[in-house]
Design a protein around this nucleic acid. Structure first.
Lengths: 339, 339
DNA sequence: ACGCTGCACTGAAGCGCTTCACCTGTCAAC
DNA sequence: GTTGACAGGTGAAGCGCTTCAGTGCAGCGT
């Protein structure tokens, strides 16, 4: 059984291939009646478009690209990506688009991937994550005939590109204020990779807020791994001015922190409150349950995909604020006992 | 700047487009000297192949497909997929292949995706995961002109398709014997989704081994979520014949089990030993650290990709055993105190 | 000298679609 | 009745590549 082409449909429906193309793509040029006849024949024959032929003749690829510049071994750590991808997919499926995924070691390789995709006309658009300060990708994607892109990250980092972001600064300030309100006066932050833009933004917000409230605010640095989360926690808890609350930049580190606390005999939440950024199922599986900054990552991904379609369809871009992570206090946060 | 095509290269190198094609694809038909000249010109001009044109003329798509039939919201749970994908990618990158990913709600949708990909000549091959008993995908992918495929799962489930598998039965038996050896006589298993083939295989191995050792062996059913892992644990620990060891089908449930134990005042590992299937960073972040069945999922993914390339290149398939998960006892397993 | 083989290369067809220039018939306007 | 506009088509070019039937030519044996 050879491939069914629009020529087959045209023959069978007694029209030209041009007419078939118009009908199948829902554009003017054929009468409603002819259109429905053609659609009928196409369905009957079980026709499927050849994406190759389509994109060769200059039309859509029906594919969007996502490249993740991360060490493969660390990718599994964070549930963020998988949920985010699932969210994108949910939106793509509706338009029967595919997602072309690539995992590369660094930003250079990511740029090479973009270049290649553009040259090969492989994708209609890309979504870019993990924005850095002065991100080279932003510059590249802003060039005249770059691939349509939506970047995930703060407008301050996104240049003129369409971006979707969450207001991490507000979320951070809210968390610090909450901890302050329940009596904490020594609050720490265990932060992720410094080169990421959002780390910077959270740092700033954290520093500003503790300064404003006039409380101590220490920051520990990590690379997001459980290991470093644990050692940062150990450093904090064994230091001279032990914090009574710690805000972690992801859930795995918060979990590690919880472990270190048990190990050191520091009771959670009696002696130490813990808040995790990213609220994955993980947070509900621990005992006590991790208080977390909750954000629906799947719908965030869907939002990003919608904005990307806007760009692909030539609609105007802009800056779009997704919902702000909300603090969900569970078992690891409590009023600070007077001492 | 218009696209650079092989015609440009041909003109510049003073040869025909045919010669250029032969040179670029490393096939006979041009002399070594001409070939290197053409390659030089191509590099100089910064030529990139048009994947659309390539696949239109019947050649490779340079893309492999992966469809995940899972509820998006549960995908983030398991680090398995992301690590697995990263492993596949590592192998694809070397041949500059792309990975087309699709997340769909069920098996039917997965089959539709395959059908569509085949009709659209969208991928050169697919990898199929989460085999079921009597999996309809196996039948479909075994048809004469189906897409080349590699399935991840036990040979008993893979029919005549090329498959890559881990010997879960051995791993399970080893774990049970280990627990028995350190004194446990009431061992339970918290199992995942029944319709998955590997659940079945682990069930069988578990049952056989406890029977052979003449110890109690109870099985709790879940859908892999932390929630159900927790309630299965609660049921087991509050039952009449409380187990002294539990083997969980994934790490998130093991974590949840650990939480439930604390909640109920059951000491781990003194009163209860816990083993998790899947050894993610998570397992090292808990306190005590989770003993786990460790398997390098990333290299597993790479292995699968290599087998898929074999299939795509027309080489012979077969059944390939990947390394067996090895028990890594950590803080949650201990010798059973005499009672 | 001759044919013959094999290598290096040419040129064009064809993959399945989109799109553009062009044709035809109808109908309203004058 | 003639014009013009317009809806509803047609047919072929073209997208960038692969591939296949040829062409030309050097080198060989006889």
């Amino acid at each position: 059984m050879a491939r069914i082409t629009i020529a087959d449909i045209a023959r069978r429906a007694g029209v030209s291939t041009g007419a078939v193309s118009y009908a199948l793509n829902n554009r003017p040029g054929v009468s409603a009646e002819t259109r429905s006849r053609i659609l009928g024949v196409a369905a009957e024959l079980g026709w499927e478009p050849s994406s190759a032929a389509r994109s060769l003749s200059g039309a859509r690829t029906e594919t969007v690209g996502l490249v993740l510049a991360r060490d493969p071994s660390t990718l599994g750590f964070e549930s963020f990506y998988m949920q985010f991808i699932a969210g994108i997919e949910s939106e793509l499926a509706a338009r029967s688009y595919g997602l072309l995924l690539q995992v590369v070691p660094d930003l250079d390789a990511e740029l090479r991937a973009y270049r290649k995709w553009r040259a090969a006309r492989r994708v209609d658009g890309v979504v870019t994550v993990d924005l850095r300060l002065d991100d080279p990708r932003v510059a590249w994607l802003s060039e005249p005939d770059a691939i349509p892109a939506v970047v995930v990250g703060d407008p301050a980092l996104a240049g003129d590109l369409t971006n979707v972001w969450t207001d991490d600064a507000s979320a951070m300030r809210e968390s610090v204020r909450y901890l302050h309100a329940v009596g904490h006066r020594r609050i720490a932050r265990v932060a992720g990779v410094t080169s990421f833009g959002h780390t910077h933004i959270r740092d700033e917000a954290f520093r500003e807020e503790v300064a404003q409230l006039g409380v101590r605010g220490e920051i520990g640095r990590t690379d997001y791994t459980a290991d470093q989360g644990a050692s940062a926690t150990r450093t904090l808890l064994t230091g001279p001015e032990r914090p009574t609350a710690i805000i972690y930049d992801n859930d795995v580190m918060a979990l590690a922190g919880l472990g270190v606390a048990s190990e050191l005999g520091v009771r959670v939440p009696a002696d130490l409150s813990i808040i995790a950024w990213d609220d994955s199922p993980l947070c509900q599986a621990t005992y006590p349950r991790l208080s977390a900054l909750s954000h629906d990552v799947t719908s965030f991904g869907a939002h990003v995909a919608r904005r990307l379609f806007d760009r692909i369809d030539g609609r105007t871009g802009g800056s779009f604020l997704d919902s702000t992570p909300t603090l969900r206090p569970r078992g690891t946060t409590a009023r600070r006992a007077e001492d």
